[in-house]
């Protein structure tokens, strides 16, 4: 059952991933200027030089050949002797299917290598933020629901609206101003505001944690805001259900009613929401990463997009797309695990 489900989902994912690669590839090709903007800027390049460089980069090939080359199909075709089909093709290299994302157009490094080098940083940040968000949003949501209409509930509502309404970059800058710059001015211990470690001297656990605090807090505040609202309303809904009343009628303690019958059912929607954030684990949190110069995937994608590093951006988008598909799958599985009413079909 589970196997069949997984297989079906995997098959369904293929057109999605192919579609994403195709769309991304085409968008990149129609991006501003020529595909290689720098190429035509050099006063010392003759049109012949430009032609040669374009040829070296494979840009003179038909676009479908370039696409097939990039995803690795051209390479397979070449291996099985079908290269003749690809009119105008040359310099075919292993592509995505062979596990190669190609090389960066900016610094010549392997795209895959760059991605996997940034991945731990991004996972550290987003996982910390998600864990913080989950761990805090459930109790806040439950407390809000149980004391509905109270001052405490209003305060939590205020917090969560603020969390959604305050832009992350602003919150980040304010926290830097207070906990980094001002604390430093006041002679207090201050939190570092950029990077993952202190250059040169840093790198121990405490140093890493100190660097993690501000970005993780900013990122989790957003999660916290949304998830606590969901938990609260979901909890309210559950608590008004018949089976809760029945449980109470049976004389079950309020504590057991709340946590056993109430909460267990109330967190189901939360599982979906958290599951939806799973791709963010690897695709990164662009704004927070940019504000705190956190060397993660999001920042990499952002900087390389601005630098017209097409291969890098293509690699990251494809990578993220695959993970979104995977994230949704995991979320479905989790959903089934917490809610016996939902069956995998």
């Amino acid at each position: 059952m589970l196997l069949r489900f997984l297989l079906r989902r995997a098959l369904a994912a293929i057109p999605v991933v192919v579609g994403v690669t195709l769309i991304t590839f085409l968008l990149m090709h129609s991006a501003a200027g020529s595909y290689v903007p720098g190429l035509s800027l050099n006063p010392n390049l003759t049109p012949k030089d430009v032609e040669q460089l374009r040829s070296e980069l494979g840009l003179d090939q038909p676009i479908y050949v370039q696409y097939l080359d990039w995803i690795g199909v051209a390479w397979i075709m070449q291996k099985v002797g079908l290269a003749g089909v690809l009119v105008g093709a040359h310099g075919i290299t292993p592509g995505l299917l062979q596990g190669s994302f190609g090389h960066s157009m900016v610094d010549g490094t392997a795209v895959g290598g760059q991605i996997f080098e940034r991945l731990p940083n991004t996972i550290l940040l987003t996982l910390t933020a998600i864990l913080l968000g989950v761990l805090l949003s459930i109790p806040l949501g439950v407390m809000g629901a149980l004391s509905r209409g109270s001052k405490l509930d209003h305060f939590f509502s205020f917090l969560s609206i603020a969390g959604v309404a305050i832009p992350q970059f602003w919150l980040g800058l304010m926290l830097i101003l207070i906990f980094s710059v001002k604390f430093h001015d006041w002679g207090l211990p201050f939190l570092p505001s950029s990077g993952t470690t202190t250059p040169f001297t840093g790198g121990d656990l405490l140093d890493r944690l100190a660097h993690l605090v501000l970005p993780a807090v900013v990122l989790s505040f957003f999660y916290l805001a949304i998830w606590s609202r969901y938990t609260r309303s979901s909890m309210l809904e559950v608590l008004s259900q018949d089976y809760v009343r029945t449980a109470r009628a049976k004389g079950m303690s309020e504590r057991r009613v709340t946590y056993l019958h109430g909460l267990r059912n109330a967190v189901i929607p939360l599982v979906t929401l958290v599951g939806l954030e799973l791709p963010g684990l690897v695709s990164g949190a662009l704004v927070v990463e940019a504000v705190f110069s956190w060397p993660g995937i999001g920042l990499l994608a952002f900087q390389r997009a601005l630098a017209y590093d097409y291969t890098m951006v293509l690699g990251i988008v494809t990578f993220a797309a695959v993970l979104v598909v995977l994230g949704n799958l995991v979320s479905d599985l989790l959903y089934a695990a917490v809610d016996p009413r939902i069956r995998l079909q």
Partner: peptide, 12 residues
């Protein structure tokens, strides 16, 4: 970098 972008910027 934004402008350079393009190709193996170094070759171009």
């Amino acid at each position: 970098l934004r402008g350079m972008g393009g190709s193996l910027a170094f070759t171009t």
